[in-house]
Design a protein around this nucleic acid. Structure first.
Length: 348
DNA sequence: CAGGCGTGGCC
DNA sequence: TGGCCAAGCCT
């Protein structure tokens, strides 16, 4: 696309948006502050195609802020199961309750939005700019990639000084008019044109003045994150099975899988007597299933599932965090993906 | 403030 | 196919 040199950054980008930008995503229909907020939180570190079904199910169950504010945490985590970064779901509910109690509606003031749990500067800017056309910049992964190339930024965007520099650029390029198109366009360009590998510079509205493009540096920018060795951890996941039910326990709200239900874990294989004593049960059979690896952002977890068929259970549960879950029934709470995977294996 | 926090798509 | 990384935020 050829644009003459005098066309401003903002005008080029907004013009591109009207020709090529995304306009039919689920959260772009009947926009409210609530639905934009929900989509923005779901989209944090998560791809659009992954989010779409989760967003639709969520809005279906909780159509308004008031509906969400009155929900139970387990209901919210159920709808979040598989999406990851579960603090987002817990914060979403927290924020909804705060908004209902403090404001009675979704606030429109930037600092009030920013103060809500789970909403940082970029998400606050996205909510208010995309929904109400308020002139706040955004800085998500797509915009960062575009800016790092356009301004030839040679340092990793995870460093604070680089982050600060990127925000300065984001503020500077923000147009006075049409911010709602501009911000959406910057994300669309980052996602569809200024891609990580093989960017389509010949169709980019910023081609003429992009430093990386002019200098042939697109393959080297943005500077990639310094790689670190992922440690390998291992765990045993124990499926105590009795009458087609398994024992699950709700995890504390801090740490991995916070607030989700998972199978009990142990560091090493337990013997039958150990299991019987620990859980006040009688073990009929003990069987090890095929181990598998679950990989997180920051480590690998090698999981060995062990199934203990029980003939008897003395006390049903040890504390309020535990519950028996009937296989093949629909959970009304959140569950970790490895737990789901093992339960599926028990069923088949 | 660098590291913790999930999962699946992509090549 | 294993590593990279995605519409970041919190502590």
């Amino acid at each position: 696309m050829q644009l003459n040199q005098t066309t401003s950054f903002g005008d080029s980008v907004i013009h591109w948006y009207h020709q090529h930008g995304r306009k039919t995503l689920p959260w772009q229909q009947n926009k409210t502050l609530y639905t934009t907020w929900l989509s923005e939180v779901m989209l944090q570190q998560t791809q659009v195609t992954t989010v779409i079904p989760y967003f639709n199910r969520f809005v279906d169950k909780f159509p308004t802020l008031a509906d969400l504010a009155n929900a139970q945490e387990d209901e919210v985590l159920q709808l979040w199961t598989g999406l990851g970064y579960y603090a987002r779901a817990r914060n979403l509910l927290k924020a909804a309750k705060i908004m209902q109690a403090e404001y009675g509606e979704f606030p429109q003031d930037f600092d009030q939005v920013l103060a809500l749990p789970g909403i940082g500067r970029s998400t606050a800017g996205a909510i208010l700019s995309l929904t109400l056309a308020k002139p706040f910049p955004i800085l998500d992964g797509n915009v960062k990639r575009v800016l790092c190339r356009y301004f030839e930024i040679q340092t990793w965007s995870g460093e604070k000084k680089t982050q600060d520099l990127l925000w300065q650029h984001a503020e500077k390029i923000s147009p006075a008019q049409g911010i709602e198109y501009f911000n959406q366009a910057m994300m669309d360009i980052g996602s569809a044109v200024c891609t990580r590998g093989k960017p389509k510079c010949d169709t980019c509205p910023l081609e003429q003045n992009c430093q990386a493009n002019l200098k042939g540096l697109t393959s080297q920018l943005p500077v990639s994150k310094p790689k670190k060795e992922k440690p390998v951890k291992s765990t045993i996941m124990l499926a105590l099975k009795h009458n087609n039910s398994v024992l699950l326990a709700k995890r504390p709200s801090t740490g991995i899988w916070g607030g989700l239900f998972t199978l009990p874990e142990s560091e090493r294989l337990l013997t039958e007597p150990e299991i019987e004593q620990l859980f006040s049960v009688q073990v009929k059979t003990l069987k090890k299933l095929a181990p598998f690896r679950h990989t997180f952002t920051h480590y690998h977890l090698d999981i060995t599932p062990v199934v203990a068929e029980l003939s008897q259970i003395q006390s049903s549960i040890r504390d309020t965090s535990e519950r028996w879950f009937e296989l093949q029934s629909e959970a009304e709470f959140g569950m970790s993906v490895p737990t789901q995977k093992i339960l599926t294996e028990l069923t088949s």
